[in-house]
Computed example of a mutant assay.
Amino acid sequence: MALVAVLYTYNDLPEVRAQHLSAHRDFLASQDNLVLSGPTSDGSGLLLFEGEVAAVEAAVNDDPFRAVGLIKDRRVFEWTPVLGSWMKDLKL
């Protein structure tokens, strides 16, 4: 199965973000194919899924952050890791 990365660029709306963070995290936790997710040091968000690009893209359309206008830009793309210490742990 392919790995699919999702890169969110957020709008700068800290009060809205704080209000909807729990719903966003609950939504992500409900995704059975989510491998890892979290914020980046530049204020973006990086999510890694197992699956196909089209299916992941369709799934993240339902992210509560999107519904309230927190996602300014979103990139969804297949990612092929080739080296690294997590390769074995992630069974890649």
Rank of each mutant, 00 (worst) to 15 (best):
V4R: 03
V6M: 05
V6R: 02
V6Q: 03
L7C: 09
Y8R: 00
Y8W: 11
Y8T: 06
T9W: 10
T9C: 00
Y10M: 09
Y10R: 11
N11F: 11
D12G: 00
L13G: 00
L13H: 00
P14W: 03
P14H: 04
E15Q: 07
A18I: 03
A18G: 09
A18K: 11
A18M: 06
Q19N: 11
H20W: 01
H20Q: 04
L21T: 14
S22D: 13
S22Y: 12
S22L: 14
S22M: 13
A23W: 03
A23N: 08
H24E: 01
R25Q: 13
R25S: 06
D26C: 01
F27H: 04
F27T: 02
F27W: 04
L28S: 06
L28Q: 00
L28R: 01
S30E: 07
Q31G: 08
D32L: 09
D32K: 11
N33Y: 06
N33D: 09
S37Q: 10
P39V: 00
P39I: 05
P39Y: 01
T40A: 06
S41V: 12
S41M: 10
G43L: 03
G43W: 00
S44V: 03
G45Q: 01
L46K: 02
L46R: 07
L47G: 04
L47Y: 09
L48P: 11
F49L: 07
F49A: 00
F49K: 06
F49N: 05
E50P: 07
E50W: 09
E50A: 12
G51P: 10
G51V: 09
G51A: 05
G51I: 02
E52T: 10
E52A: 10
A54I: 09
V56N: 01
E57Y: 00
E57C: 10
A58C: 04
A58W: 00
A58V: 06
A58T: 13
A59H: 02
A59P: 08
V60Y: 06
V60F: 01
N61T: 14
D62G: 07
D63F: 01
D63R: 01
P64Y: 04
P64M: 03
F65M: 09
A67E: 12
V68R: 04
V68D: 00
V68Y: 00
G69S: 10
G69C: 02
L70G: 03
L70D: 01
I71G: 09
I71D: 07
I71A: 05
I71K: 04
I71F: 06
D73E: 15
R74D: 10
R75T: 15
V76R: 02
F77R: 13
F77S: 14
E78W: 03
E78R: 15
E78I: 13
W79K: 10
T80M: 14
P81N: 00
P81D: 14
V82S: 15
L83G: 10
L83V: 15
S85N: 08
M87G: 13
M87A: 15
L90I: 08
K91W: 08
L92F: 14
L92T: 14
L92Q: 15
